[in-house]
């Protein structure tokens, strides 16, 4: 469904991605794990068209997308939940959600989707008039996910959804991701919490300093000695 071919990307002199190749199969959860600064977020920003790539190609369903603007990419059905949630702090919860559906012109459908996510995330319904910035970290993460889903994506990019959340909340978020997948969404999940991510995913990539160093079925990565040592705190 999504395919990156030797993607390079730079921040000025910094060579952040050094030829990343990866692919995501439709209906799967694919995860990217790697240490701080490995280039995971940069990869997602390249896919979303925010960060430009220096060479290589990114294709979505056979179509080249690295030349498109971010809003066109969203239009194709790729939506990202950015690292750190990035809720609009001075928009209400409902306004945040409506921004997720910005490209959908059909108002009736938008409100239908809104009701759907209010059912899945009742806390958001209770808080819908409250400013986004006043929510707790866990609530903000749910809002960020619901906001992205408002755009009815087909491929969801999730950047460290467990960041800074208590274990119980992390479990809750992981369950939500599982539920989203069961509705047929394809997910590219970036995580530092390798254990949780690999338990959830079908396939995984390990990124180190801008390069893919390992890829395998998630179940096999969980057993891999190198992964165990470096990312699962065992070994």
């Amino acid at each position: 469904m999504l395919k990156l071919e030797t993607v390079h990307s730079h921040y000025g002199q910094i060579h952040a991605l050094k030829g990343i190749s990866l692919s995501v199969q439709a209906g799967n959860i694919c995860c990217l794990i790697g240490a701080n600064g490995a280039g995971k977020s940069t990869t997602l920003m390249c896919i979303s068209g925010i960060k430009n790539i220096s060479s290589g190609s990114i294709e979505f369903e056979g179509r080249t997308i690295h030349t498109l603007s971010p809003e066109k990419i969203v239009g194709l059905g790729i939506v990202q939940v950015p690292e750190g949630r990035r809720i609009f702090p001075y928009l209400t919860v409902q306004e945040n959600l409506m921004m997720g559906a910005y490209r959908c012109a059909d108002k009736a459908k938008v409100y239908e989707t809104l009701e759907k996510y209010f059912d899945i995330f009742p806390i958001l319904k209770d808080r819908n008039k409250q400013m986004g910035g006043t929510l707790s970290g866990g609530e903000q993460q749910m809002l960020a996910i619901a906001r992205a889903l408002m755009g009815s994506p087909r491929l969801l990019l999730l950047d460290e959804p467990s960041l800074g959340l208590a274990p119980l909340v992390v479990e809750n978020i992981m369950n939500i991701i599982r539920q989203i997948k069961s509705e047929g969404l394809t997910i590219l999940l970036v995580e530092q919490n390798a254990q949780a991510a690999l338990e959830l995913a079908d396939y995984g990539y390990v990124i180190e300093t801008g390069e893919v160093v390992l890829e395998d079925a998630a179940a096999d990565l969980l057993q891999n000695a190198r992964v165990k040592e470096a990312y699962l705190g065992e070994g």
Binding site: P70, V79, Q80, P82, F88, P89, Y90, M99, G100, R103
Partner: peptide
């Protein structure tokens, strides 16, 4: 409030 996130939501900034 946040231009990058706005673009990520599909807003034509």
């Amino acid at each position: 409030q946040d231009k990058v996130t706005s673009a990520l939501m599909g807003i034509s900034v």
